[in-house]
Design a protein around this nucleic acid. Structure first.
Lengths: 133, 133
DNA sequence: AAACCATGTTAGAAAACCTAACATAACGTT
DNA sequence: AACGTTATGTTAGGTTTTCTAACATGGTTT
């Protein structure tokens, strides 16, 4: 969690930009923070600064809300998803350096299954491709 | 110039963020705009909004300034570089749809040579990778 | 030395953002 | 049907960020 992650988690965007990118109102974004669905950084002057990860998260939240899920539900879902992401990443790292090809194939299969399980939120992962590159 | 370009040219960052990312002062950034080295977008409220391309450009400008080049020089260099980029991209597009493999190889070789010619600014192209992904 | 260049600094105004409070429509519960 | 809760809208007053314009300054060029 150094290279890539450090960058995608870099606080860069003020709330106005995020509003446009996500089509959420400031009120909504602040409300979601209040309920700990996101934790944007702050400037010295206390203004919120959002990272690409934050924006991805907000897009996911929007999705889940459209599905009729409430704050509590979303919170749990995001939590589980984060955990899975962590586990998967750790395993991937481990795998890459010390496992056999056979085991590697297993892992990949596992990852793909995981991806399909919890709604298709995994597919939304990295949705920022809409805006960049 | 639709997909990728549209995104990289999307106005997203306020000047404060750009200052941090480029380590330039607000005064410098505004001065460069005054001399038409960049043309950031504006919000309805007249605040500057910078794109990834703008930031790339500012990093290039910084580089050229470190090399002792003045506004006029930088302006010309950026102009030429833009033209080259256009030409190359057009050629690339043409090539991809209607040229033979042989010709394609030629083009690629050409691109690489061009890249080396004008200082190494072409290598700085896409420097934002420092911050993202 | 005079002029110019790139940048710093300051002042006053306007925009964007902040928190807190109250309002409300939709919904579920009693 | 009345009530409480949830997610969001709206408003108010205050703070931060950015804006332009002007003047200041050290380093170059002429």
């Amino acid at each position: 969690m150094s290279g890539k992650e450090l960058r995608r988690s870099m606080p860069l965007f003020p709330i106005g930009t995020v509003m446009q990118l996500t089509e959420l109102t400031a009120r909504q974004i602040r409300y979601y923070e209040e309920h700990e669905l996101i934790s944007p950084a702050r400037t010295d002057g206390n203004r919120r600064l959002f990272s690409l990860n934050d924006i991805d998260r907000l897009l996911e939240i929007k999705d889940l809300i459209d599905q009729g899920i409430n704050m509590a539900g979303i919170k749990q879902l995001l939590l589980v998803k984060d955990q899975q992401a962590n586990v998967i990443q750790q395993q991937a790292e481990k795998a890459k350096q010390e496992l056999t090809d056979e085991q590697l194939r297993n892992l990949l299969r596992q990852e793909l299954q995981q991806a399909g399980r919890f709604n298709r939120s995994s597919l939304r992962q990295g949705d920022m491709s809409r805006f960049f590159h």
